[in-house]
């Protein structure tokens, strides 16, 4: 986590945003990207989406303690979207802190990563559900992913999509974007930032035809009637009609290899904004 921590934040009743920012240098700029986790509270049990970046483990444990001591239902499940350390690096610390919790999702590999904790792995295939009490968490196939083992998740009551590396984009810490949802920072160039993140972290997209992925993404959002999108690296999206066009544009830009030009464009945006706000 860099700087003051604006999280946890309740995005919808019982949907809590946790985690911290990762500072990145790109072409002389300092950007932030979230390494977010989300606590999904039901009436009987809670589920944590993602296990966090290893450097944030103590921060995340403190955020979780705050919520759980405040009356949120006990943590029973940890759902790491995939086995990269920015998504799953905190799983060992979490399983040790919360002895009643299980790690679920595609749990291959973890018997080698977590010796002694292998009995607490619970496979959760796409389409399978966990009953949290008055809501269910459904594992989904991932549309935008790096590791093939990636799963997305969906909360049925609040209609929230948890999409791992999907909808990933950086933001500007100095401009006060940390802890904000996408629609609260309309000046953030989401398309350009999405393209930049795509170039940095979703390298394969520059070799693929991105259009089928975008169509499938739209289909998932439509079929599930998604109201809130909770990405691991981007700011949460509360108004899909406002932000989705920029996400689509960013995926296309990144896939077309236009991200460097996009970053220069974003830097120009940021410079103008910072000068206007006096924070540059």
């Amino acid at each position: 986590m860099i700087g003051d921590d604006p999280l946890p934040r309740e995005l919808a009743p019982g949907i809590f945003w946790l985690g911290g920012c990762l500072e990145q240098r790109f072409q002389g700029q300092t950007l932030h990207s979230y390494n977010s986790l989300y606590l999904v509270a039901g009436d009987d049990a809670s589920l944590l989406v993602e296990a966090g970046h290893p450097q944030d483990s103590e921060l995340v444990l403190a955020q979780l303690d705050e919520l759980l001591q405040g009356g949120v239902a006990p943590l029973r499940y940890i759902f790491a979207t995939h086995q990269e350390t920015p998504h799953a690096g905190g799983v060992g610390a979490l399983l040790r802190r919360y002895p009643d919790a299980e790690l679920c999702g595609d749990v291959r590999d973890y018997h080698l990563f977590l010796p002694g904790l292998a009995e607490r792995l619970r496979p959760l295939a796409p389409g399978e559900r966990l009953d949290l009490g008055a809501t269910e968490f459904v594992a989904l196939d991932a549309t935008i992913r790096d590791l093939a083992s990636t799963r997305w998740g969906f909360d049925t009551r609040r209609r929230v999509l948890f999409c791992g590396d999907g909808f990933a984009y950086s933001h500007y810490h100095q401009a006060g974007h940390c802890g904000m949802v996408a629609e609260e920072v309309p000046e953030l160039p989401v398309a350009e930032m999405t393209a930049l993140f795509t170039e940095l972290a979703l390298y394969w997209t520059r070799f693929a035809d991105i259009e089928p992925y975008i169509r499938r993404l739209d289909r998932v959002l439509d079929e599930r009637a998604v109201r809130l999108v909770c990405p691991t690296h981007g700011l949460p999206i509360t108004e899909l009609g406002i932000t989705m066009p920029a996400i689509r544009q960013g995926l296309r830009l990144g896939s077309e290899g236009g991200a460097r030009a996009a970053a220069a464009h974003a830097a120009a945006h940021a410079g103008a904004r910072d000068r206007a706000s006096g924070s540059a």
């Binding site: 500072e23 290893p54 450097q55 483990s57 103590e58 350390t85 905190g90 060992g92 610390a93």
Partner: peptide, 17 residues
């Protein structure tokens, strides 16, 4: 790799923190 900001990247939560 340059993206690594600090030693926390390698702290996978085993042993005394």
């Amino acid at each position: 790799l340059g993206v690594v900001a600090g030693p926390g990247w390698f702290d996978l939560g085993r042993g005394d923190s």
